[in-house]
Design a protein around this nucleic acid. Structure first.
Length: 545
RNA sequence: GGCCCCAUCGUCUAGGUAGGUCCAGGACACCGGGUUUUCAACCCGGCAACAGGGGUUCGAAUCCCCUUGGGGCUACCA
């Protein structure tokens, strides 16, 4: 049976690169009728974030990626947190040491650094100098007494290694190219390369599908696998890497960097206020701008919101909060660096699973194109249809704490219906939120006011519209439409000339749900109140125009 | 610096494993036009690529080599 796994380290939110790796593993397992395991690689105490595991699981679930074994669901090969598997790693480390396939070393970071610098100066690859005789337990005691760190290194095989990769074919590594790497850190935790091998074996993983950044780890892991006597190797598939628009691997750093750029490029920013909204000190803001430190994600987000700027989405939650559907993400990610062949693009999940094939993975790196993602989202919103879209929309509204959440299902369905063609859920929320604000809380967009109210007799027309609305007995979409259309005809102007002032009056902005429906949904009373407020507020300034 | 991977329109890609059906197809973006009560959506049309150089072959986007360019790794991170 095919067994795949996704093994993130809990250092933060799940980002799209990780999501893609998880998705490919999951898709392949589903396709082959196999199992998909979630394993948390929390062996680096310094980098772990307490909430990260929770976050990653939430994000995977939002995408619809269910794990058959792993945290919370359990399974026969647990525990699924590496920090809880120390005994297993210790056992294998001991085995390797006993068999003289691994040895203790006591170098300080400074000593290693010096060796590395020397190698570089000689234009050579750094290879750790393996001692002739491996240190024994007594040496470990001695080192500890002198406060020297004791780590364990794997005595790497000296012959060359060939990695057989499903997407790249045979990749050869010459003899002596891979040095003795550390398998157990001085804090007693295993390193990634070691824990990964032990776990892939003990969890019976058959296919290791991961990013190309791991290709260079593979010869070492393969050698370890053999030294441990684990038998037949799993199949390896190293996928292309996702590149960002700014070049280089898509990384979590991009959001803070984008924010830093914006802050630097903007004049008159109240740094104290910025620190306050970001819940950090003024000093931290300053060091952040100087690119010396990076605040936490919530701080970054809060500051961006305060500045009213949109940062590029990187994490799965970012896309959720920007109004993308999980179906969009899954479809788009499944096709990034992979292709079903032919012209197929927008596909439902079962089809995605059906056509998934490791041999269709692309070798070249691919750029994450947000514009195309937007197009995918537009299409998926269109295709999602009633119930599913409604449920996604409600999830979204809750997450962004929109006032629109106060609407009942019928109302939300109506909004979704009249917003057909929207690109994101955020668009729909933006267009409809005016319906759920108090009449006196409407914020007027300066540009919109200038353009449609203070020009071309906007206010005068608005007054006429107001009177006609007030006189209307049946406040129906049809009547509202007829009234506005005939008024436009009467005045010999386009419908926009009479509709836009009304729109700005009730929404404060030039963009909203279609005007006839908007007015009807708002209701006669609120509409008139808002128009009156608008007329009063901008009435005087009309004289100078 | 060392090692490794990669190379078709601006972008994602089809075609490449079995060379001719490819003066290279689709999608997104972009440009032009249409539709339109805003923003979208929608409809029609257009622009646009086999990185360069050598081979092999009757014939190469497809096979080989070199150059160039991009990316990755080079941690007691994963």
């Amino acid at each position: 049976m095919v067994v795949t796994r996704f093994a993130p380290s809990p250092t933060g939110y799940l980002h799209v690169g990780g999501a893609r790796t998880a998705l490919f593993n999951w898709l392949f397992a589903r396709r082959m009728g196999g199992k998909f395991i979630l394993r948390i690689e929390d062996t680096d105490l310094k980098r772990n974030t307490p909430t990260a595991t929770r976050q990653v699981m939430d994000d995977l679930r939002w995408l619809g990626i269910q794990w058959d074994e792993g945290p919370e669901v359990g399974g026969p090969n647990g525990p699924y947190l590496q920090s809880q598997r120390r005994d297993l790693y210790d056992k294998y480390v001991k085995q390797l040491i006993d068999e003289k396939k691994a040895y203790y070393c006591f170098d300080t970071p400074e000593e290693l650094d010096a060796l590395r610098k020397e190698a570089e100066a000689q234009k050579k690859n750094f290879i750790y100098p393996r001692p002739k005789d491996f240190p024994g337990e007594s040496d470990v005691e001695k080192a500890k007494a002198r406060d020297k760190p004791a780590a364990v290194r794997f005595a790497m095989q000296l012959t060359g290694i060939v990695v057989t990769d499903v997407v790249r074919g045979e990749v050869k590594f010459g003899p002596g190219e891979i040095g003795d790497f550390i398998i157990q850190k001085s804090d007693g935790f295993p390193t990634y390369n070691f824990a990964c091998v032990v776990d892939d074996y003990s969890m019976k993983v058959t296919h290791v599908i991961r990013g190309q950044e791991h290709l260079m780890n593979t010869p070492g892991q393969q050698a370890l696998w053999k030294a441990l006597g684990f038998g037949e190797l799993p199949k390896y598939a190293h996928m292309s890497v996702t590149i960002s628009e700014t070049g280089g691997k898509l990384s979590k750093r991009e959001r803070p960097e984008a924010l830093r750029k914006i802050i630097k490029a903007t004049q008159d920013i109240d740094l104290e206020k910025l620190a306050e909204v970001g819940n950090i000190t003024l000093e931290e803001v300053e060091t952040f701008i100087k690119a010396k430190t990076t605040p936490d994600i919530p701080s970054i987000d809060a500051m961006a919101t305060y500045l009213g700027v949109a940062l590029p989405e990187i994490n799965v939650v970012d896309f959720f909060r920007s109004g993308y559907l999980p179906e969009t993400m899954v479809n788009f990610l499944a096709l990034l660096g992979a292709s079903p062949g032919g012209d197929r693009e927008i596909m439902p999940l079962d089809e995605l699973i059906d056509c998934f094939d490791l041999s269709r993975l692309t070798k070249a790196n691919s750029l994450f194109d947000r514009k195309k993602l937007l197009a995918f989202n537009t299409e998926h919103i269109r295709q999602a249809g009633g119930e599913k879209l409604l449920s996604h929309f409600k999830d979204y509204l809750k997450a962004v704490e929109s006032p629109v959440i106060s609407a009942d299902d019928k109302m939300l369905e109506k909004i979704l219906e009249i917003c057909a063609g929207a690109r994101t859920l955020a668009d729909i929320e933006r267009k409809s939120r005016f319906l759920f604000l108090a009449d006196e809380k409407i914020e007027y967009d300066e540009k919109a006011v200038k353009k449609v109210l203070l020009k071309n007799n906007g206010l005068a027309i608005l007054q006429i519209v107001r009177d006609k609305l007030a006189a209307m007995e049946q406040f129906t979409v049809e009547n509202i439409e007829n009234m506005l259309r005939s008024l436009a005809e009467e005045k010999q102007v386009g419908l926009g000339k009479v509709a836009q002032p009304l729109r700005v009056a009730i929404c404060g902005t030039a963009v909203s749900t279609p005007i006839f429906d908007s007015v009807q949904m708002l209701g006669k009373e609120n509409t008139l109140t808002r128009v009156d407020i608008t007329l009063k507020k901008f009435g005087q300034s009309n004289d100078d125009c």
